[in-house]
Nucleic acid binder design. Structure first.
Lengths: 109, 109
DNA sequence: ACCACTATATAGTTACACTTAGTAGGTGGT
DNA sequence: ACCACCTACTAAGTGTAACTATATAGTGGT
């Protein structure tokens, strides 16, 4: 339906994942499905897993492996303090960009 | 003041440049100054020129070189039909992303 | 046995903003 | 004449993050 969003998602998708984790313990496959349902229909598992690996490396999330009765074990993620701070900064940046883009779009001369 | 916006600008800055050109004939140095004044204070000439080269390669803009009384000659850019179509798509994508991000942010459960 | 769904991992590619450094023209001060 | 500073463009190289493609594995239904 809509053209390729890829480039516009850079720096945004990671924030979305952080936000989703902040709503409560979740795992990669579920995050992917939620993103798809939100409207980001082209986001696939591979993309989300690389983000999760990155978040773990940056120590913004905690992880706990738990069995599932629907398939292989799941890796559940929760935000830690650093993650919450990062998320706060993310929304701050988004608000800034968003307002500037609006300013540019609506600007009359 | 605000942290690094770099990643979030990917796919956005090019659209901003297109928008600015659509407002009337302009050139790299001026676009950079306008972006800085808008609030994108870290955007430098080098970044804008690479975008302009790309836009020309993609044949979204027309270029005309003109002398300046303030320094070296300027390369003035104008949008062509393909550029206007690209700009329209850009704002469509931005509107989509923007609304989805808002949905995610405001979501209660 | 085969397929579909659930679930994770990862090497390689691409795109784009950024860094850094260079070239050049014009003005004003010393 | 020289220098500092602003104007104006170019281009090679870097870093980051989303995407592509593929592999592995558990569970349930036919």
């Amino acid at each position: 339906m809509l053209e390729n969003l890829t480039e516009m998602l850079k720096g945004v998708l990671e924030g979305c994942v952080l936000e989703m984790i902040s709503r409560g313990e979740t795992y990669g496959y579920e995050i992917t499905r939620t993103l798809n349902a939100l409207g980001f229909s082209d986001v696939v598992e591979g993309t989300v897993y690389t983000i999760l690996v990155r978040l773990e490396k940056k120590k913004l999330v905690d992880m706990e492996k738990k069995p599932s009765d629907m398939g292989p074990p799941r890796k559940f993620f929760t935000l830690n303090d650093a993650g919450r701070e990062e998320l706060r900064k993310f929304w701050e940046k988004w608000a800034f960009l968003s307002s500037k883009m609006n300013e540019l779009k609506e600007r009359k001369e």
